[in-house]
Design a binder for these strands. Structure first.
Lengths: 347, 347
DNA sequence: TTGAAAGCGCTAACAG
DNA sequence: CTGTTAGCGCTTTCAA
């Protein structure tokens, strides 16, 4: 009833050989006679011997686990990344430890520290909002300097020197806006976050660039910058009112680009109240191809970020660096995972 | 540039004392003179000494990490559970390792086995569909028997003897159906999964019970059992057609109960095509209070399962058992997390 | 008050 | 071909 613990030592005692003999036999060493080798292997098999991975970690000074620190676990995009990391990790014999920073700098630093205590060979991390706001990257840079590799994804910073996997937010937003324009919708409402949320800022840039390239004058009245940190019922309720008002004051609007699918969901709700039909009266596009875009009515044309691919790429890069002995000689790489637009009913 | 590794040994050498002295000093042992104690602690602090948790694990035979094995990472309900586990784990000094069974029995067993190799002190697990279909629980029972505690949540089985945290699916479905009836909707379409998906089966039971209690005759034509394993675009497309047909053949339908929010999303889409208004013509309720219920138009009345609470409860139970020396003497407990209905526009 | 030694489970260099 | 030893980093008993 006790924890199953058949060890080399126990096998050695039972079979009257030394521990190292058992160890070698189980690795098919030809130092050991075929006879004892088979005897030992048979005994081990029958008793379900499995090497103690903690002992191995201590010995090898590597744990074969990678840590993932993300701002939010309950989030379609991040879970897809985890999924991707999981796929590669499993294939390469790594396990993953996950913890959430909850958008807090303090928790992010704390998690990084505790998981660094020899528990993880490296990290895959996306910066919390607070971290970006404060531009405090000491904990990250310290970890890297102390020899533990980190791959940053999605929410990254130029002030951190390491491997990165990013989404081309500007281009994705550009494409999305452009699609609307191609469909003849030139008065496009942008719903975005304040600039300290980097991805919001970049997507705003993409929007602006698309307008410019098509010689459409930027109208500040058509740019709604909302508090990207707030996801309460109340916030979304107010957002809906804000959208309604904007439409009332700007009846020329015939397209909407939202920087995430939640905002787009609210847009649909507002348009319904305004009795505007989609996509005839107003077309809608959003960043983030999640469950909302897929299951809303009408379904929403969305910029897909390939979260799984981001995860797979990050994991591959990280493991490469972990297993490369002189990893600090490898130059850091930044990969851009390109987005694609999934067209749906809303355009 | 190498992995930061200030160890007891290094401190001991630097300070010309023995390793055990350092160890004791750092734990404030009064065996050690105030003098050396302070000297050692100061040196340790300055050099950022942090105990090697792998060494501790080996020594203590416990890792302070708990494993979570879930069928699907990209899933609102499961990620909420992870979130809850994370909250409790962090508080009690545990880390969590996550891996996905991908609804596969083989992967589930594999993950359980590899994580059991001294990497985790216990597991929190929800059965994969394949596991339930095959009713093969050997891997689980074996793990429990070998002394590693498991807490099963949501998708559980009577054939496994362990702590469990479940949702009262029957009652949740009963309440949901009942709500429709109270609103005067007595011809209720049920969209559910085949019976081998336990939660689908239980929710079907709740539906049936509610009808019975209200003296409403069960009409098999109003029960749509679909393939709960399929989540492809094509499947949802066909589901929509199926729903449309059902409405055409049964114009009396004035309520719908869907066993998850994805199905409910499709229902909304179908109703729109039929030009039926919600909730006036048809009211809709679903199980699973996820992002779809919140952000669709109209928003959908949903049965909330308190995923975070499930996670917190599971983690609490598991850690209790891990830290209780003679845990096999504790009787197994089954906790039922009750659901509540979040009323929204669809009713 | 301090230190030596054994042990957690395993590997690997070295000795027989 | 097999065994001894040392060591990974730490705790803890026992001896000094």
């Amino acid at each position: 009833m006790l924890r199953n613990s058949i060890t080399l030592k126990k096998i050695a005692i039972k079979l009257n050989v030394s521990i190292s003999t058992v160890s070698k036999a189980l690795k098919d060493s030809h130092e050991i006679s075929a006879d004892t080798r088979e005897k030992i292997k048979a005994y081990a098999r029958i008793n379900g011997y499995r090497p103690n991975s903690i002992a191995l970690s201590l010995k090898n000074q590597k744990t074969k686990t990678i840590g993932i620190i993300i701002p939010d676990i309950v989030n379609d995009t991040f879970s897809k990344v985890i999924e991707g990391v999981d796929q590669i990790a499993k294939k390469k014999g790594y396990n993953i430890m996950i913890s959430s920073s909850n958008e807090s700098l303090e928790k992010e630093a704390y998690n990084l520290k505790t998981l660094s205590d020899s528990q993880t060979d490296g990290f895959i991390l996306s910066l919390s909002k607070e971290t970006m706001l404060n531009k405090n990257y000491n904990h990250i840079n310290y970890t890297i300097k102390s020899g533990i590799p980190i791959v940053l994804f999605d929410r990254v910073s130029d002030d951190i020197d390491c491997d990165k996997v990013i989404v081309d937010d500007v281009k994705g937003a550009y494409d999305a806006t452009n699609l609307l324009i191609q469909k003849g919708k030139k008065n496009i409402l942008l719903i975005t976050t304040e600039d300290h949320i980097i991805v919001g800022k970049l997507r705003t840039q993409g929007y602006e660039r698309a307008l410019k390239n098509n010689d459409i004058k930027l109208d500040q009245a058509l740019i709604l910058k909302v508090d990207g940190d707030d996801r309460s019922e109340k916030f979304f309720f107010n957002l809906e009112k804000l959208i309604l008002n904007t439409f009332k004051n700007n009846s020329q609007i015939n397209g909407v680009f939202a920087v995430n699918d939640e905002y787009a969901g609210i847009v649909l709700r507002a348009l319904k109240k305004l009795n505007l039909s989609i996509p005839q009266d107003v077309s809608v596009v959003c960043f983030t191809d999640g469950v909302i875009s897929r299951f809303s009515s009408p379904s929403i044309t969305a910029v897909r970020q390939h979260g799984i691919e981001i995860g797979r790429n990050s994991a591959t890069k990280l493991i490469e660096r972990i297993e490369n002995d002189d990893n600090h000689n490898l130059p850091y790489r930044v990969d851009v995972i390109s987005t694609i637009i999934i067209e749906r009913e809303s355009t």
